[in-house]
Deep mutational scan, measured.
Amino acid sequence: MAEQVALSRTQVCGILREELFQGDAFHQSDTHIFIIMGASGDLAKKKIYPTIWWLFRDGLLPENTFIVGYARSRLTVADIRKQSEPFFKATPEEKLKLEDFFARNSYVAGQYDDAASYQRLNSHMNALHLGSQANRLFYLALPPTVYEAVTKNIHESCMSQIGWNRIIVEKPFGRDLQSSDRLSNHISSLFREDQIYRIDHYLGKEMVQNLMVLRFANRIFGPIWNRDNIACVILTFKEPFGTEGRGGYFDEFGIIRDVMQNHLLQMLCLVAMEKPASTNSDDVRDEKVKVLKCISEVQANNVVLGQYVGNPDGEGEATKGYLDDPTVPRGSTTATFAAVVLYVENERWDGVPFILRCGKALNERKAEVRLQFHDVAGDIFHQQCKRNELVIRVQPNEAVYTKMMTKKPGMFFNPEESELDLTYGNRYKNVKLPDAYERLILDVFCGSQMHFVRSDELREAWRIFTPLLHQIELEKPKPIPYIYGSRGPTEADELMKRVGFQYEGTYKWVNP
């Protein structure tokens, strides 16, 4: 592979701008107003304001973009700056750019259920340069409990009458099928589907988006991507930290609602779906819905739930269990780990287990898709061969690698495990991989909904998990304890083995 010439960040961002501006969906010269509902909250200060700053800094926003914060707290732009700027990672050389960014910011205080507050917000936006005809993007960085009041008031008082209007809704989209349907029906009564952007930030990850290209742009994968060759698929999300004093919020939802029903299920769809007619948003989402419709409700015998306990040999936070978090209700049975087996009941995947695993306070930070292939028929190497695996590593250190057998150097035919490896950090030294939120917010500006969740996708996802969630809430089974920093409950490994996964433990990928 030829040595790549190092590029400056300015040059890299210039390439990104060229890609972005050559499309006809990006209205570079139009006025846009980006409204952050819930501007005083954690999500706004840690993710949304920093993301908008990065896009502005790199010249990736339309030229005439204004940012308006809205929340109940009586704040000023200076207050917003004070709480969000520490997350910007701005350099001293960017000081003038930073001043320009905050000059485009404003803030309006108001209630979430008060019509007069929204009329005041609308008047404020109209007073901005060309504000009355601007395109408006409303980001709901809010708890779902206020979605209905907020969307109703936005629709009645704050819509642009000339430009387009788009609304970005953060997960969780309800707690179960019934609450999700209620919320979807409410929002759909106010906005068209092409105006609604239900954001799952995992769909903005580079390697998640790469799944489609790997599958449908490489001839070698087509013939082997089926039940005849693939023994099982494992989708993993692991965090090495616990709730760390923020367990009160987590306890309301648990690990299945927080990660599995959305992030992991979306990745499953991209692995299992048929080739779409095109890369058009609805063509892709149509195929994802077909996959979900082929999955039956989760069966309790295919589920393992766990909850982390303190590690007596650990240090600091590792010595504390979930129930030691003062914000967690006493005696909570909320799971911090889950392993679930699903089956896609169609011709391509009949009988292939899709194993979804996620948890907190585990032994490493990792998100990946792992396809394990069947054993080689007619073994001539005296059971020395391990199964081939194709691994798409989402985070950290984005990579695609194939675990395969090669001859060990020497005189004899002794096979050993090795890999074919594409590590993004080595291959793409001159490429700026956008943060997931950067990519998705740019998608909203461009009107691309491919990486957002459609209402029928959402409904099918909740259909699969709601009976299990209701059973857990009714019966309150005690989750299996696992030690902070471990791989999780051993019962999860036993479940995976029972459905056909072979864990060798003899080879570990190392970032080159």
Rank of each mutant, 00 (worst) to 15 (best):
V5E: 15
L7F: 15
L7R: 15
R9V: 15
R9N: 15
V12Y: 15
V12S: 15
G14Y: 15
G14M: 15
I15M: 14
E19Y: 15
E19S: 15
A25V: 15
A25E: 15
F26M: 12
H27G: 09
H32P: 09
I33S: 06
F34V: 10
I36K: 04
D42I: 00
L43Y: 04
K45F: 06
K46L: 03
Y49P: 01
P50V: 04
W53K: 02
W54L: 10
L55Y: 05
R57V: 06
D58W: 08
G59H: 07
L61C: 07
N64M: 07
T65M: 10
T65R: 04
F66A: 08
F66L: 12
F66K: 11
I67L: 07
V68T: 06
V68F: 07
G69T: 02
A71H: 02
A71D: 01
A71M: 03
S73Q: 08
S73L: 04
R74L: 14
R74A: 15
R74G: 14
L75D: 06
V77R: 09
V77A: 07
D79E: 14
D79F: 06
R81E: 06
R81K: 12
S84T: 12
E85T: 12
E85D: 07
E85F: 07
P86S: 09
F87Y: 15
F88G: 00
A90C: 08
A90Y: 09
A90F: 09
A90W: 11
P92V: 09
E94H: 11
K95F: 09
L96R: 10
K97C: 08
L98N: 01
E99Y: 07
F102N: 04
R104D: 00
N105A: 06
S106F: 13
Y107R: 02
A109E: 13
A109D: 13
A109S: 11
A109L: 09
A109Q: 12
A109R: 11
Y112Q: 02
D113Q: 14
D113Y: 14
A116V: 13
A116Y: 15
A116K: 14
S117A: 14
Y118D: 04
Q119L: 11
Q119A: 12
Q119Y: 14
R120S: 13
R120G: 14
R120M: 12
S123Q: 15
H124Q: 12
M125P: 02
M125I: 14
N126R: 13
A127Q: 15
L128A: 07
H129Y: 14
G131W: 07
G131D: 12
S132M: 14
Q133S: 14
Q133V: 12
L137F: 11
L137Y: 09
F138K: 03
Y139K: 04
A141V: 00
A141H: 04
P143Q: 01
P143G: 03
P144C: 00
P144H: 02
P144Y: 00
T145S: 12
T145H: 06
Y147F: 10
Y147I: 02
A149K: 14
I154N: 04
H155M: 08
S157K: 15
C158H: 01
S160R: 08
Q161D: 14
I162W: 14
G163F: 07
N165K: 09
I167A: 09
I167C: 14
V169E: 00
E170G: 04
P172K: 05
F173P: 02
F173H: 04
G174E: 04
G174N: 00
G174D: 00
R175Q: 10
L177G: 08
R182W: 09
R182T: 13
L183R: 01
H186L: 06
S188A: 14
S189Q: 13
S189F: 09
L190C: 14
L190A: 09
F191C: 05
R192Q: 13
R192Y: 13
R192D: 12
D194P: 08
D194W: 09
I196Y: 01
I196F: 05
R198A: 04
R198H: 03
H201W: 01
Y202W: 02
K205M: 03
E206W: 07
E206S: 05
M207A: 03
M207E: 00
L211E: 01
V213S: 10
V213E: 03
R215I: 02
A217L: 00
R219Q: 08
R219H: 08
I220H: 04
I220G: 03
I220R: 01
I220E: 02
G222S: 15
G222L: 10
G222E: 14
I224V: 15
W225H: 05
R227M: 08
D228M: 10
N229I: 05
I230R: 01
I230M: 07
A231Y: 05
C232H: 06
C232Y: 05
I234N: 12
L235G: 08
F237I: 11
K238C: 04
K238Y: 00
E239T: 04
E239Q: 04
P240M: 08
G242E: 05
T243F: 00
T243Y: 06
E244Q: 10
E244D: 15
G245M: 10
G245T: 07
G245I: 01
G245N: 12
R246T: 00
R246I: 01
R246V: 03
R246K: 00
G248Y: 04
F250H: 02
F250P: 05
D251A: 06
F253D: 03
F253Q: 01
F253M: 05
G254D: 02
I255Y: 02
